[in-house]
Design a protein around this nucleic acid. Sequence first.
DNA 1: CGGTATCCAGCCTGATACTG
DNA 2: CAGTATCAGGCTGGATACCG
Lengths: 148, 148
Amino acid sequence: MATHQNTARDPQQRTAPPPGAQVPNDGSGVAECRQVLQIISLVGNKWSILVIGHLRDRTLRFSELHRAVDGISQRMLTLTLRQLERDGLLTRTVHPTVPPHVEYALTTLGTTLLDSVATLGRWATTHRQEIDDNRLHYDTAHSARTPT
Amino acid sequence: MATHQNTARDPQQRTAPPPGAQVPNDGSGVAECRQVLQIISLVGNKWSILVIGHLRDRTLRFSELHRAVDGISQRMLTLTLRQLERDGLLTRTVHPTVPPHVEYALTTLGTTLLDSVATLGRWATTHRQEIDDNRLHYDTAHSARTPT
DNA sequence: CGGTATCCAGCCTGATACTG
DNA sequence: CAGTATCAGGCTGGATACCG
C-alpha cells in the first residue's frame, strides 16, 4: 500500500511524512490509526512478517530464507529484505567469501515488533473461529436468495 | 492483498482455509504468521482500521463515516463496511425511514480487535522516530554514490 | 550464491453516474 | 441518504534472464 516497491526504483520517494498531528494518544485513537497504517504497511507486505518470523530464532542466509518462506520469489525476498534492513528491523552481514555468504539477523527493534504483532497473532488465534463463523453466517444469509 | 474486493463480486470466494496446521503457539511463531496475515489483511485494507477507529466511541451513519474518514470513496466505504460487517466486527442497522438512515456500530469483537491493534499502535508511536531515523540513515548511506 | 533489471499480469483503488 | 455498477489507472507482485 505504501511499499515503494514498484520496479525496484525510487526507494524512498513515497515517504511523505507530514509533520504535526502529534497527539498524546493511548494507541487506539483515531489519529493514531495513521501510525498503525505505517506499521501494517510495513508488516502487511505479506512477506515481511513471514521473513522476520523466520528470523526470530536464528540468523539465516538468503537461500535459507528463500527455502524457509517457501512461495516467495527471489525478487520479493530481496525487496522485503532491503526494506526491512532499511527500517532497521534486521541486519545484513556480507561475508566476502568466494561463494558469497549473506547473513540476515533480526535486530532488537525487529524483535520488539515481532513481539507486538504477537498480540495480534493471539487475537487472530482467539477469534479466528469466531470470524470464520460470522463470515459463514453472513454468507449463508446472503446466498439464501433462492427461495420459493 | 487478499481483500476480495475487486469489483464487489464474489465476497467469499477467496476464503480457502486449509485445515490442519493447528499448532499451539504463543502468537509469534512462524506458523502463527499465517493467522496474523489474515488479520492484517483484514485490517490492512487501509480503510478498515480507519473506519473501526472512528466507530470506536460512537455509532455513525454512512455519510458521517464518509465525512469522518475523509479521503475514502463511497465505493471503498461501502466495501469496507460490508467486509467488516461480514466479519462480525460491526453491525449495520437500517432505519426504514423515508430518507434511509443506516447506523454502523462496532461489535464487541471489533472493539477487541481495536484493542489489539492498539498494541501495534503503541509500538508504532514508540519506534516511529527510530524507524524514520533508520530509513534516513540507510537512504543517506545509499545515496552517497556521487563521490569524486 | 546473492542480487539486480525487465517484462507482464492481476488486483486494488478512485471517479463518475445511476437507482431506490 | 445509501448503495450499486462501470470504467480507467496505478501499484503490487511473480517469472525470467543476466551480472558480480
